[in-house]
Design a protein around this nucleic acid. Structure first.
Lengths: 192, 192
DNA sequence: TCAAATAAACAGACTTGTCTGTATTGTGTG
DNA sequence: CACACAATACAGACAAGTCTGTTTATTTGA
């Protein structure tokens, strides 16, 4: 047999993560039940529980996958920029493209940690990790800029970080790009 | 009979709103069921449904009550400041006091709208309203400052608004004051 | 043959909201 | 002050559905 398209179905694990990623992000963690995930993934419940201990574990896998995807797209988007400083400013271009595309659905990590059962600590840890990675990315980029000392680069990176988070959540609430546009303007001022 | 303390129990409506406010804010909207609310409020279920059509309606009442409380405390906190500009900067002092007191539980509106059933639009509207009020407050304060034109005041107010939102959500994720401290520093720069 | 995936039933707890019937309250009138 | 009537609050059962997670027994594919 010849398979023009790769007929090999994705494995159970991959299908679950893929489906859950879509559902968790677009309709919310609390709004998404196990049953919907396995139905849409076309997977038996017992098979799913062979690969994941709990719903929280699925969410952790989702967030890990999302992290590499999100950081990858960020790198891709800022690649065309020459200076570290303009790379950092370009983050807000990335935010605009991304958030308008998803109809201002906001940040996957912000969304999941704000209304979570008290004991879901693995999810919270993923949020902390992701935000720390982004924070580190900003600081690292800015530290490449000769005009800044290391200390300055760290402080400026943190300020940009706050602007990013504010732009994301506010654009989500207001369903508008103005917070991102505003944040970009503020970012330029700060780095000037 | 003499009642030293006001013996008059609060009415059903008030008790429900008070209890629900505590629960919705501290353990989350999705994590709080009707039954827990009526149990802790000491109210019969039928009585509660006499005053509120649905759980969403309780949440709306909670957010309305929270809005007046929150804005009131803000006004109180910045009252000691003389200039409009320092009032605006003082918002971050307010944030620090508030958020450390509630152990970085974050913003009631941000928390409730990020993982909500799709049809809960009355709640979303409350979030939009609250954020617009705060945005207007900032713009109004800054427009009192003679050194800014009206247009400048609006733009600067929006930039501060983004910083505020970012500081709240990021301090919630990281369980630390650094985002607020950083936002304050950035705010001073922007208004300088 | 053998491990993995399947369908489907099941447990048990939870959800919002309705309903019934009883008890308690407050108010207006005599 | 006393009585009656209406409004409200009460406890708790109930409906109809959701949820996560387990188990069993069957089928599939290498």
């Amino acid at each position: 047999m010849f398979y023009i398209y790769p007929m090999r179905k994705l494995g159970v694990k991959e299908r679950v993560i893929e489906t859950a990623s879509d559902l968790f992000y677009n309709q919310g963690y609390n709004q998404t039940g196990i049953n919907q995930i396995i139905d849409e993934a076309g997977v038996a419940k017992a098979s799913m529980y062979q690969h994941f201990r709990s719903k929280e574990d699925i969410a952790v896998a989702y967030l890990i996958a999302r992290h590499t995807m999100w950081m990858g797209k960020l790198d891709e988007c800022v690649a065309k920029e020459k200076s570290p400083k303009s790379k950092v400013i370009c983050v807000f271009t990335y935010l605009t493209e991304w958030l308008t595309e998803v109809d201002f659905r906001g940040c996957g990590w912000q969304n999941i940690i704000t209304d979570l059962p008290t004991d879901h600590n693995k999810i919270k840890d993923q949020a902390i990790y992701h935000k720390n990675e982004l924070r580190g990315w900003l600081q690292k980029e800015l530290s490449k800029e000769k005009e800044f000392t290391n200390k300055e680069a760290k402080e400026l990176g943190d300020e940009v970080m706050v602007l990013i988070e504010g732009a994301i959540i506010l654009s989500q609430i207001q369903k508008d790009t103005w917070p991102i546009v505003t944040a970009k303007k503020a970012c330029k001022k700060i780095l000037a």
